[in-house]
């Protein structure tokens, strides 16, 4: 039982990070109808910024802030400088541009920083807190959970209760109609990319310190898992990203704890196949899909 509680706790923290990353993918999909295959590579660029700033200043928090700013700038630059030129007539053009961007970013990082893994520090202890003899979350896991919940709450407030959020949602559903109502759709798309890049960067920053460390491919597995979560939840659904993230995170933790880490990829694949067989559009897909 103690083991189960511990695994559920760590799974929840891992799931929160996956949910954040999936949310970043959902934001782009809803706004621009592009699966951003460059999300992981963009996030790893921000993580390198955090690593460098933290190394220079000794402050984790300055590194975090610099990475989020860099993430936002990168999102802006990618949308305005690359993705805006994707042909709206061909859904594949955005995907191809994103894959090209992955190659460029990861190659550039490899040239500048080399392929070695660099350990990243965490701001809190990562050994589990023991309550009544039962190991629960580590302070770092708790930090990850609080940050993830706070970011999701902030995004919910943005989308539900602000004019900008309403404009972004309206533009995602019907861009031409939104224009007639005064929405500057190109601006909402850019804001979506910036937000998505910041959220994706944050997810990478939270996850990389708990994995092997930082190298140009440090977020590859995060992208694969985050994409799985987004598909399981429904690419259109922020709530789906949240629930899908927690589901996949907890499932990964339980499989690791009880069956071995080697079976995690197979378990995730089985979950993905099951969801695609039973609900091809994802668990939380809208009853009536939007027009792409």
């Amino acid at each position: 039982m103690d083991r189960l509680v511990f695994l559920l706790g760590t799974g929840l923290a891992r799931g929160a990070v996956l949910a954040l990353f999936a949310l970043a993918l959902v934001l782009i999909w809803r706004g621009a109808r592009v699966v951003n295959f460059a999300q992981g590579a963009m996030a790893v660029v921000s993580t390198y910024v955090a690593f460098e700033v933290t190394s220079l200043t000794g402050s984790y928090w300055l590194g975090l802030l610099a990475a989020l700013l860099a993430g936002g700038l990168l999102g802006f630059a990618v949308e305005r400088g690359v993705m805006r030129f994707a042909s709206p007539a061909s859904p594949l053009s955005g995907v191809i541009l994103a894959i090209g961007l992955v190659m460029v970013l990861q190659s550039a990082l490899g040239i500048v920083f080399g392929p070695d893994y660099r350990p990243m520090r965490v701001p809190f202890d990562d050994s589990a807190i023991v309550v009544g003899g039962v190991p629960l979350l580590s302070p770092y896991d708790l930090f990850v959970l609080v940050v993830a919940v706070a970011v999701m709450g902030a995004l919910a407030v943005l989308f539900r209760w602000t004019s900008l959020g309403l404009q972004m949602r309206a533009a995602a559903f019907a861009p031409e109609v939104s224009r007639l109502l005064g929405v500057r759709v190109s601006r909402t798309v850019t804001v979506g990319w910036v937000l998505s890049s910041v959220v994706g960067s944050l997810a990478a920053l939270l996850l990389v310190p708990t994995s092997l460390g930082l190298n140009p491919h440090a977020t590859d597995s995060l992208f694969v898992l985050g994409f799985t979560v987004a598909v399981v939840g429904g690419l259109d659904s922020p709530v789906g990203a949240l629930v899908g993230g927690v589901t996949v995170g907890v499932a990964m933790s339980l499989v690791t704890g009880y069956l071995g880490a080697g079976l995690v990829p197979i378990a995730v694949l089985v979950l993905l196949v099951l969801v695609l067989l039973l609900r091809p559009a994802g668990l939380f897909a809208a009853a009536e899909a939007r027009r792409a």
Partner: peptide, 25 residues
């Protein structure tokens, strides 16, 4: 202001949100 032949509503939004979208700013 204009209405459209095919309604042009934001089908994923509520009635209130659809009306609010006509009063942005």
């Amino acid at each position: 202001a204009r209405t459209l032949q095919g309604l042009g509503l934001f089908r994923g939004l509520t009635v209130r949100e659809n009306v609010l979208a006509g009063r942005l700013g």
